[in-house]
């Protein structure tokens, strides 16, 4: 429902690839900041009107996936459905040093791949808004033996502010039903 299939595919020309490299760099910068626990610097990469959303995924009958597989942003309960204030609170909480679910801090590695530009407005050459899709693999290890792999898809809307991209909307599709982790204490 989020991928390339439901919208016209952008022409793969030089300006597309240049834009994609630019966006990839942005995603890698995010991962670098998070994995190095520079959470406040990472917050600066998020737009003031951010929506940060991770639905739960349901087991539904064939044919009902579009309608019922994922919980919705507009209603009900999801894993995450929040604004920048709340994401900022999560950072603030870690920085208290007594958020025991992240104290001692987990070791994380965020990998981003399969980056594609779904839409570029007004066009790939002069884009100020882009819609993207990618895949993520996030490794988290904490204390001694706790290890989790979070794997899924991400659909982001980025907007340009001055020379910088900012994340305006992030839809994180974690491919699990019953969460196979005690906590979601990292960022995606």
């Amino acid at each position: 429902m989020d991928g390339n299939l439901e919208r016209p595919r952008i022409r793969r020309d030089d300006s597309y690839y240049a834009l994609r490299r630019d966006i990839e760099e942005f995603f890698y910068d995010e991962a670098e900041l998070i994995d190095n626990r520079r959470f406040e610097a990472w917050l600066d990469m998020l737009h003031e009107d951010l929506r940060y959303f991770m639905p739960m995924r349901h087991n539904v009958k064939f044919g009902l996936h579009a309608e019922r597989e994922d919980t919705k942003e507009e209603e009900g309960i999801s894993w995450f459905n929040e604004d920048k204030w709340t994401v900022g609170k999560r950072v603030e909480q870690i920085l208290t040093g007594v958020h025991y679910a992240e104290e001692p801090l987990s070791r994380t590695t965020h990998m981003i791949t399969n980056v594609q530009i779904l839409e570029a407005t007004p066009d790939a050459n002069d884009a100020t808004t882009v819609k993207t899709s990618c895949r993520f693999l996030t490794y988290l290890n904490r204390v001694e033996y706790e290890t989790y792999f979070f794997v899924g898809k991400r659909y982001d809307t980025l907007v340009k502010e001055g020379d910088d991209w900012k994340v305006l909307h992030r839809r994180i599709i974690l491919d699990q039903n019953v969460l196979q982790a005690k906590n979601l204490s990292t960022f995606f």
Binding site: M56, E75, G76, S78, N177, K182
Partner: peptide
């Protein structure tokens, strides 16, 4: 009920 969280913890 507006939603159900399901998760496994050790």
């Amino acid at each position: 009920v507006i939603g159900v969280h399901k998760w496994v913890f050790p």
